[in-house]
Design a protein around this nucleic acid. Sequence first.
RNA 1: GCGGGCGUGAUGGAAUGGUAGACAUAUCGGACUUAAAAUCCGAAGGGCUUUGCCCGUGUGGGUUCGAGUCCCACCGCCCGUACCA
Length: 866
Amino acid sequence: MSRYSAADIEPKWQAAWDKLGVFTAKRDESRPKYYVLEMFPYPSGRIHMGHVRNYTMGDVVARYKMSTGHNVLHPMGWDAFGMPAENAAMAIGGHPKDWTYNNIADMRAQMKPLGLSIDWSREFATCDPEYYGQQQALFLDMLDAGLVTRKNAVVNWDPVDMTVLANEQVIDGKGWRSGADVERRELTQWFFKISDMAEELLEALDGLDNWPAKVRLMQENWIGKSRGLEMEFTLSAPAHGHDTLKIYTTRPDTLAGASFMAISPDHPLSKALESDNADLAAFNADCRRMDTTEAAMEKAEKRGFDTGLTVRHPLDDSRTLPIWVANFVLMDYGTGAIFGCPAHDQRDLDFARKYDLPVIDTFVAMDSDARVENTAFTPPKTEKVRWIDQPAGVTEATGQEAIDATIDWAEARGLGQGKTQFRLRDWGLSRQRYWGCPIPVVHCADCGVVPEKKENLPVQLPDDVTFYIPGNPLDRHPTWRDCACPSCGKPAKRETDTMDTFVDSSWYFARFTSPHAATPTEKADAEYWMNVDQYIGGIEHAILHLLYSRFFARAMNVTGHLPAKSREPFDALFTQGMVTHEIYQTRDAKGRPVYHLPEDVSDGKLADGTEVEIIPSAKMSKSKKNVVDPVSIISAYGADTARWFVLSDSPPERDVEWTAAGAEAAHKFLTRVWRMARELADQRDAGVGDLDKSLQDLMDSMQLGMNPLDDELMRATHKAIDDVTKGVESFGFNAAIARIYTYVNALSKSQASARMKWTSMRILAQLMSPMTPHLAEEMWALLGGEGLVVETPWPTPDDNMLRDNTVTMPIQINGKRRGEISVPVDMSKEDVEKQALASDPVQKALAGGTPRKVIVVPGRIVNVVI
RNA sequence: GCGGGCGUGAUGGAAUGGUAGACAUAUCGGACUUAAAAUCCGAAGGGCUUUGCCCGUGUGGGUUCGAGUCCCACCGCCCGUACCA
């Protein structure tokens, strides 16, 4: 071979790894285990660059850990249930099952050429009956343990298609197919009682030291613990059997500033009033004609309806407050009723101005008497303020102090109770869809809702279903629902709801430890392999997937399927950024955007010379025509180039922009490295000198009398090992790669002996092996390395080789760089100061005077203040 | 709306509160070549009155001997917002 050919190299080494089974994970108590996991993909049919980046990062970690003596588990599977399969069946015909398994086969075939160190023997798809049957067993155990409940919840209902819509299927309040106005409809649904674990899920965040702080913060805010006051207001006159209105507030300190009450359209009082108030009924109906997302609710115009009812103000019997129905009050949170304090809440203020309600200040800033006009006064709860009217008698205090005092005050007088509230709601898992895990329960006329017997699992999806009409095919299947009641044996009907696909992805990491066991997990395997030492995935999963998985791990511990140490299943988490690409866009006659494929654009112009508008760094999407297909990159340059590029150009947690030039450059670099190895190998073949087995051997034999050029390269090699190791261990892959570039530049310029260069080149192969494993094996083999790189221990640097004798220190005058001095590393602070003061720029600036202050940061900098 | 994050040369980016721009791309110059490609070597933030000085990390303030980094406000983009996965 006379030039670098990935097409020849890559399949060869993949076959070599397969033959030895180096990636097959086996329990081995004698070695420390390391479980590295990337979030498994949805089988859309094509892998994309985001997958390449995600799995390459995991592969770097896995291969590095392998080389440091760990027994590595690195599995792969498919998050295979979900709506796209049903949508495909509706759009193009066929069956979700065929579509899904075909996609999996395609994606596996696209993924394998990447040369990932995956144990494919553990592969499974969540739509395998073997997997979802165990998920049903888990569900039954959780039901038994009291972790599951049934209650009502609202869904998006499409009245034309007669079907439940997902939030993403509701566009501007209308169904995506029918275009009909979507309605909120209440259904009885299954829930996991995740809110029972809110406190623990919150507190345990503290222990997740190796998770990004931002993810812990997002989860903390999502769980949303707050302490407030629950209290009752007395209605001036009872209405529809209600004589009090129970509210929950996190700001009881502002009670004196209450100027109206607001209740949810779904509040029992609001519903009761509908019967004799047609206008209110119409208002409520209008409020319910909105999709169910929080964003839509919050962004909608704030509207209210005056019920005409009033309550008495608890602080002053002579004051009455009107009760309004307001579209921004959620029935799900607190009691579905609040008091409005316009002076200290912007939303309440906007509402008060709109409907001409009073604004009553209860506190002002320490240094100002300014009253609220059109901006509510909402200082942080930690800021001290002056109170005008405070029930608990507080005069000067922070908001938080006033809240605490008011809760105590209200409890002492029997006006209300302090209450800790969580924002986190129970996890509704019912889905009215076919392509999901059937919920294994039976509805019996006599016995009610009965769990299916474990020996009847899996409750399998029927294959003979059609998708010509919307709705759940399980519902309309002629026979599938029919079954015997597990309790009394009489004819009964199966539940037709299936599980949220988040359930599937909430325990797959545990299943990988024994993917084909007859129980959800196998004790010894779970005990050995858990926890996941390093989990890698997108930041978009920061809340739901990760929170649900944390809940599931606890539930699996409660039900005996995971050890207690796995209640937190992911020891370390890394969230990686997206792969983006420029969009090339022109406009049609009507000014609408027209998108163009990258290959149709050169020098910012189309073939016919039309200038294109370039939109940088956009998420890859088919409709914008800016998708780069990994398969074509691999066939053009090879997997190592693709892997090298996605790691090199951006820090892993940030987005990386795919550019053709960048890919080209990555390939050129790998070619250059290969050529250097080839040339050295040719010299060896010509019989110049002997090879040493390792860097250590070389050092031992050359330590004395080494020539300066060898010494220089030796030091560069040790520094490269040190820096690359640190980079890989800290997810600084781009920095590690930059360091490899520097090292290669030094190596190619070096005039050191052939022996030294051979050894350095082999070290280079090792340092590159986690990122470009095929090229590394090839170099290793060319240079006479023993065995495979993948099985060779990672090199360790010698501390003596990392130390420099002198250091260059910049000299600042008043914080601006004015010169530098070179001093021995271990020179004392005093001597460094003397040298710095004696230097030309300082002497010049001092002009005979004395400095006001001299700061010496050893090994770093000297700052002279004049 | 709310919660979280990000913003540095032409471009991707580097920088434990301590020399801003490592490394790479694009560009320019040189070597090699009949020529080109490839390869190798080199230059380069902007400006000026160029022994040196000024400006410069989205914008405006602040803390510090010293701020890309910490604090406050604002602008823009991205992620999430509970039935997309």
